[in-house]
Design a protein around this nucleic acid. Sequence first.
DNA 1: AGTTTATGTCAGTCTTGTTGACTTTCCAAG
DNA 2: CTTGGAAAGTCAACAAGACTGACATAAACT
Lengths: 171, 171
Amino acid sequence: MQNSTLTTGQSKGEQLLFLTDDQLRQGIELMFFAYRCFTADPDRILENYAYGRAHHRAIHFINRRPGLTVNDLLDILGVTKQSLNRVLRQLVEDGLVDSRVGRTDRRQRNLFLTDKGQALEQELSASQRVRMRRAYSTAGPESVQGFRTVLEQMIDPDLRERILRMMETRA
Amino acid sequence: MQNSTLTTGQSKGEQLLFLTDDQLRQGIELMFFAYRCFTADPDRILENYAYGRAHHRAIHFINRRPGLTVNDLLDILGVTKQSLNRVLRQLVEDGLVDSRVGRTDRRQRNLFLTDKGQALEQELSASQRVRMRRAYSTAGPESVQGFRTVLEQMIDPDLRERILRMMETRA
DNA sequence: AGTTTATGTCAGTCTTGTTGACTTTCCAAG
DNA sequence: CTTGGAAAGTCAACAAGACTGACATAAACT
């Protein structure tokens, strides 16, 4: 009975045993727990600054793509402008983010991290990289390749395309 | 310059190139986007029932370990009892969860899904399993193994132990 | 009998998301 | 040059879901 519930339309060949509902459910739980640990590190740091996860995300992607517009960021984060604006205003007020009027289109705002912002970004991402590095090196390169492949496939195709393009065109 | 920032103490051998800061950052972003897509499916379903992600998590683990106590669930979810209680009370009121007084220790409450609860669980987890199955089958068994290995390593050791034990002792 | 444990509850706060309405700025098409 | 609409910012109100702290109750343990 155990581990034998095959998914619809799957033959019982050994090569497909990783698609049982049980295996899928285990993957689902691993995602839940891993993500929680993954966000716990920066969350602890953010407490000291009275910021939240939303601030972290903004800082991360501004660092990733310096000069991106508010609309770009909205697109990436998938939240409303009102929600992002609250966070962004704080970061600008606190001198972590520089919001410059667009040169070609002056309606737009190009976002940059200040030195202070970069310092926090470094601190936050360092804490996550420590965890990733440990997991990667314990698991080994082949596992990491598989990890990346599956995660990519979990992302909606149109979003995946945008992300992969973003990752290629790195600073 | 690109993709060449080695992490502290890493030799430049090809076998360790997957530990550059860039690679780690890409892993971090993949986690962010994949998790968002991963939760988007059940979130859409939950809207129809006026429930949130917290309800989903409770339902998931009650289904996973029928008869678990409130304390067990608190331990797994890592939230406060006040936070869980709000959710649990709703689920009991709405007839999705059955809270029975413990037989050996009558202070405890053993939690079970009702038929109605199981139906919703099925609907929710099915939507996630569709995504997982698609990702798994596209990526292939070797990638899935790597995916699982890395995720396990991302989880704090003590929590990891408990989870793996939970996965083994499946219903 | 007193203490600890498991659970439940009330009140209040915070972050982060939402919607809706409105203004300002500015580009571009008519 | 005027005007329509897009981009951005702002204000207000609200909800979910996390938190803390205090307190209640029942049961079990010592």
